[in-house]
Design a protein around this nucleic acid. Structure first.
Lengths: 336, 336
DNA sequence: TGCGCAACTGTTAACGTTAATATTTGATAG
DNA sequence: CTATCAAATATTAACGTTAACAGTTGCGCA
């Protein structure tokens, strides 16, 4: 008579293999000092019973899991959305799994709660995307010793940080436009409370002042094509605008459309550069010159830093600033 | 002397409150038959110690967790990417958390492995996005009684299914074009092994035959703007093409660009309709008429079905086919 | 043949919950 | 005042692992 009511546990395997459950545990965890013959017998028993170790029991016994907690604002923004899957995949390669807490707003309270829920599950470490100030504050509530990587966080904060070099990217974009012969470059920015926005504004300003060019006022946007479109309508009316650096590709898309509607040709009348290199950017009208951050590299670096901390059992204060690449397409040309 | 080495456990709370740990458990789980006075005392003790229950122990004791497993191909496609966050958020509202297994390919083996890892963690249920056949097969390996919802899966398979009504959407798109006066409508499709593609092709054909219109050959694409561009170049060369239904917005973007390059105006010379209503679609040149599926609703429905199963303790065979909406913009007009 | 020591294996006790069962308390009816 | 019974609380035993330690083998060497 079979009794399939309960899933096989370690003791069942042990009985079948004629060893103690501890030996099964040793085989499972690759401990040395197990005779090859017994190892094989145990593995056969595992196979035969279709035994799978119970994670919860392991977590309880060891006090830690092979799970990484991930906190981010729920969003269909290209960057964050790519991060979830890239991270989950990178984690898998290292034998970890990812638990996602997706929150609506980046205020301190919800972020704190989300982190709390993850800690309750004894996650081995945390990767958080905290691109604005309010969210970063929540990190103060954390215990000191939990491994943590902050993606796109406050560069001034002394946590482990992984981020794209926003300033370098913005500089490259701006310089590229100046080198094409433009006297100055306008900028349509992201939301002011995002560190990414701040970095891109800083890089743009830097490039302009380095070149001795005028620094026009920042046109504020919010990452959306809609806000790019609004800014674009204003820019299209001013006849001294020949070059625009948009803080991301969607803003650029809105700008392209506004320029098109006002009869301004790109790049003949106005040159445009974006940021992100979304997969569609190459098919905008015209194909968009843009800055490409490597999101896979960000995910991989985040995981590297996190796993190093997990191994070390403490924070390491490491950080990675990844340089983005300028992708030249047809939206940039000399001024006419 | 304080000993903060160990985190407070239920017994610590019990001691402080002067009750047994079982009473603490009862308070925590909202069981009846606890005197108000003791409840308050226990809660005070919990507060004072900063006690947080250990999930792993609970999972071990109950045999189930408040975690939902999510399996999907790692991808930055708009649909799937939106689903992760939408689902995580919906889950949170119901007191669940989401564990993501993101895999590179939808072959049977990796899908099976991913599901296995989730089962090891005793997830309460599974939400899987299995838009192609090979992946669906992996579902056969599952135990019968684990709650499961299949998003975008095989409509012919007898699992709980949540999906957008692809046929209805495609029909609406095609009919909209026919009603604008076009004699027929061309279709640039998604990859042939996706159920979504199949449904959209079927709906498009149906609408055409219902209207007694010619059914042109399907132009195959792969969801990418690049493949849309290629198809668009071919379409632009044929002078009897006046209307195109693209299987998604990115394909449509590529088509728009190809038409633009060949000097074909949209919508004067050719009308185009997309599918998905990505946030940028309203800023294409021209703004794209498209079909909008409600991804939040898909996520919410998935969770509803899953939770119903979890409560019932078995599969229920329920399914939800959600109707999408036609969003009219400026890429459609009468033939000239 | 037996000694010693490493290699291997087994035994027992955690880990922190919930479930099942036992006990105490307190109110109510007689 | 007590018997009864429900409500409230306590006790004990799982759940399935790993850790710590104890015990047993077997081999090389004297």
């Amino acid at each position: 008579m079979v009794k399939p009511a309960r899933e096989p546990a370690m003791t069942d395997v042990a009985k079948l293999a004629g060893v103690s459950h501890q030996t099964v545990s040793r085989v499972l965890n690759g401990h040395p000092n197990v005779r090859t013959r017994t190892r094989i017998r145990v593995q056969a028993a595992i196979e035969e019973l279709g035994y799978r170790p119970n994670r919860a029991a392991r977590v309880l016994a060891t006090g830690t899991s092979q799970v990484i907690g991930f906190v981010s604002r729920s969003s269909t923004l290209f960057g964050p959305a790519s991060m979830v899957t890239a991270l989950a995949e990178a984690a898998l390669r290292q034998g970890f799994t990812v638990n996602v807490e997706s929150i609506r707003t980046l205020d301190r309270k919800p972020v704190s709660d989300a982190i709390g829920r993850l800690l309750d599950q004894r996650v081995a470490g945390l990767v958080v995307i905290m691109p604005v100030d309010s969210a970063n504050d929540a990190l103060d509530d954390l215990p000191e010793d939990i491994p943590l990587v902050n993606v796109d966080g406050d560069p001034r904060r002394p946590t482990e940080l992984v981020t794209v070099d926003q300033e370098a990217g913005a500089k490259a974009a701006t310089t590229h436009l100046l080198e094409a012969g433009h006297r100055t470059v306008w900028h349509v920015s992201g939301p002011g409370n995002w560190f990414d926005s701040q970095g891109r504004i800083a890089g743009w300003q830097q490039a302009l002042t380095d070149a001795g060019a005028d620094v026009p006022p920042v046109m504020p946007g919010d990452w959306s094509a809609a806000s790019g479109y609004k800014a674009g309508q204003i820019l299209a009316r001013m006849n001294d605008v020949t070059a625009v650096f948009a803080a991301n590709d969607h803003l650029a898309l809105g700008i392209l459309r506004a320029l098109h509607e006002k009869g301004q040709r790109v790049p003949e009348d106005v040159s445009v550069v974006g940021f992100d290199d979304v997969p569609e950017a190459a098919y905008f009208i015209p194909p968009l010159t843009t800055i490409r951050p490597d999101f896979d590299a960000v995910a991989a670096a985040s995981l590297d830093l996190l796993i190093a901390q997990i191994r070390a059992g403490r924070r390491l204060g490491d950080r990675r600033i990844l340089p983005p690449t300028l992708i030249k397409r047809q939206s940039v040309g000399p001024p006419s």
